[in-house]
Write a protein that binds this DNA or RNA. Structure first.
Lengths: 143, 143
DNA sequence: TGTAATTCAATTGTGCACAATTAAGTTGCC
DNA sequence: GGCAACTTAATTGTGCACAATTGAATTACA
């Protein structure tokens, strides 16, 4: 077996799956006016608002180079507000606007659509979730 | 269970795994002077050269908007040559240079390093590969 | 108290991804 | 032969990802 064969590389399978998922979300989220990474940010906000940019970065493993312009676009779309923390001027707190809060209702049906589109059983998805989590953890810690 | 909880979403697990893998490859491939997508293109070329841009797009599921600038960077790095097909001027054929061919030797050890870094057994990786392939297929076909 | 180290966000620059469009070339069909 | 339909790359524009740097603010501590 040739180690360099594209078909043999799990890396490519992960990469391709990620893009396929991204593409599916793009179609689903178009009517909400969100991209996939913007949707991920909104998920965190719907869970526990307000959050700082720092906290968003930890939750999503993204840095400010990605988050700053993304949050500006969400702000321009009227879904979030950003304000400096009065007690620590270094940190920026992100809050939902009313429109941002309301968007949650429209987003509720998305996960089910995606789960259906994968053609997999919930138990398989749970397995996959667990396996990928373990792999991500190991890769993050590896040199 | 809250369907919109970030932790419950397989989508995020796939997304995060893809980026973790990308990051690990970035470190591994830095000394070869390749990015991860460039490495994927080189894998195809090492397998079956020459190939057209079209064929690369099919193999990697990427369009010319991604491939054209990427191939120009590989050409600027002296790893590939691009030339129009004489019999069909629409198609561009990509070939390895000598340096591009030789780079394969240095790339041979990369897959093993990655496999180790995932902390998973080969059988688990094979399972994961199969599962993701199935999911990607289903998502691509879904509306 | 004053300074060094740290924290946090923003910015800059490079590269990937994809939609939409453009342009050139080929093929099919009358 | 001539025109319509199709194929193939390239380009343009938008957005994500991350490294490196900058700058402001806070904290630690000598």
């Amino acid at each position: 077996m040739n180690a360099l064969l594209l078909e043999n590389q799990v890396c490519f399978a992960v990469h391709a799956a990620s893009r396929a998922l991204d593409g599916f979300y793009r179609r689903q989220l178009a009517e909400l006016g969100l991209t996939y990474p913007q949707y991920l940010v909104m998920l965190v906000l719907w869970e526990r608002e307000p959050v700082t940019v720092k906290e968003l970065g930890v939750a999503l493993r993204l840095d400010s180079g990605t988050l700053s312009p993304l949050l500006k676009r969400l702000e321009a779309a009227g879904l979030v507000r950003r304000e400096r923390n009065a007690s620590d001027e270094r940190s920026v707190v992100v809050r939902l606007t009313e429109a941002g809060t309301e968007l949650r209702q429209s987003a509720l049906r998305v996960p089910e659509h995606v789960a259906n589109a994968t053609g997999m059983h919930l138990s398989e998805l749970a397995d996959l979730h667990r396996t990928l989590g373990r792999m991500t953890q190991a890769l993050t810690e590896a040199t």
